[in-house]
Computed example of a mutant assay.
Amino acid sequence: MPAVLKRVVVTVSAPARVQATSNTVLSAPTAGIVSGLRVVPGETVRPGQTIAHLTGPMVLTERARLAADLKSAQIRVSATTQAAAIEQQKFDEQLSTRDAIARAHAELDTARQLLVAAQAAAGSYTSLVEIGTSEPGVVTGVNAADGQYVSTGQALVTVASSRGLHVVTNLYGSDAASVTTGMKGVFLQEGTGAPVDVSVQRTSWSVIAPGQLEVWLDTAPGHSLISGTVGTVSLTASDGKRLAVPSAALILDGGIWWALVRDKGGNHRRRVIPGPSEGGWTSIRQGLAPGERVVTQDAYLLFHQDFATRYQQAD
C-alpha cells in the first residue's frame, strides 16, 4: 500500500489530580510551645484564620521585655514633653535661650521615635506568636501537636491554596512525546459526570523520575476546581494531515523501526521514525515520501527471510 497523507488524531489519557502551584507552609517564626492547634488534614481554612498560638517561658519573657521597653518609651516621651513645655515657659519669661529650646525639642523628637519603634516591636511580636493563614485553602499536613515545643522555623501546618488551582498529570514514553503546550482536552473528576475543559499550560521533565513528564493544565473560564480531587484527563490533538502507513508495515528490529519499501527492483529496507498511531494507521515523521509503496502483509517474515545469511550457527 502507498504512504498517504492522513489526519491522525492523538488521544492521551492518564490519571490526574487537582493541586495548587505551590503549598503554603506555616512555620514557627520564633521558639515556643504550640497552643490551640486544632486543625486536621482535609479541613478548609479561610484568610486571616488563626491556626495556633505560641506560648511558654521564652514567649512570656520576650513579651515582658517588650512591654517594659514600651513603658519606658512612654515615660520618656512624657518627661521630655514636660521638659520642653517648661523650657518654653522659661523662654517666654526671658529665663532661657533658643538653643535650650531647640535641645529640648530634639530630645522630645528622639523620645517619640523610640516610642514608635517600641510600639512596632510589641505589635510585630504579637503577630509572630499568632500563626494564621493569608489565603483560603485546605490543610494537607499537620507537623506539630498541641503542647509541643517547636524551634524557630519549624514547620507546623501545610495548606494547599484554593487559588490558582491546576490539573496535574504525569505521562511517559510516546504519550509524553505527543503532548505540546496549548493541547486541549477534558478532565473528568471522580464521582462526577460533568467533564471540565482543560488545556496544557506547561510541561516539565522530572529530575527525580527519569522519563516522567509532568503536565500542568488550566481550566476553561467558568469552571471551578476543588483542591485534592482526582480523576482522569484526556488530551486530543490533530494538527492537520500527516504522512501515514498501515501499522502492519512497521517492523521493530534491534530497537530501530523499519519498513519494506517495494519498487521495480523488489523489497528494500528503509529506516523510519514513526509518530502517533490511530485506528490501524501510524504517522511517519521521517523516512518515507508520499506515494512510496510499503509491504503490509507478512512484513516481518519478509524482513527476516535472509536471517540465515546474516548469522553463522555455532560450532
Rank of each mutant, 00 (worst) to 15 (best):
K6A: 04
V8A: 00
V8P: 00
T21N: 14
S22G: 07
N23I: 00
T24R: 13
T24I: 15
L26T: 09
L26M: 08
P29N: 09
A31P: 03
I33L: 10
R38Q: 06
V40F: 06
Q49R: 08
T50A: 11
A52L: 06
L54E: 10
P57I: 12
M58Q: 11
R63Q: 15
T81H: 12
A85V: 11
I86V: 10
D92W: 07
Q94P: 03
D99H: 09
D99A: 15
R103H: 13
E107C: 06
D109W: 08
A122H: 10
S127T: 11
S127L: 15
I131Y: 04
S134K: 11
V142D: 01
A145T: 05
D146M: 00
Y149V: 08
S151A: 14
S151C: 03
T152S: 09
S161M: 01
S161C: 01
L165H: 03
T180E: 13
M183A: 06
M183E: 04
K184L: 10
Q189M: 12
V196F: 06
S204M: 08
S206F: 04
I208H: 03
P210N: 07
L213Y: 03
D218C: 08
S234V: 15
A248K: 15
G254D: 00
W258K: 12
R262M: 07
R269G: 09
P274T: 04
S277F: 02
G280D: 06
W281K: 02
S283G: 12
S283V: 03
I284S: 00
L288T: 00
E292R: 07
D298C: 05
D298M: 06
Y300D: 12
L301M: 04
H304S: 13
A308I: 15
R310M: 09
R310G: 05
Y311C: 03
Q312I: 08
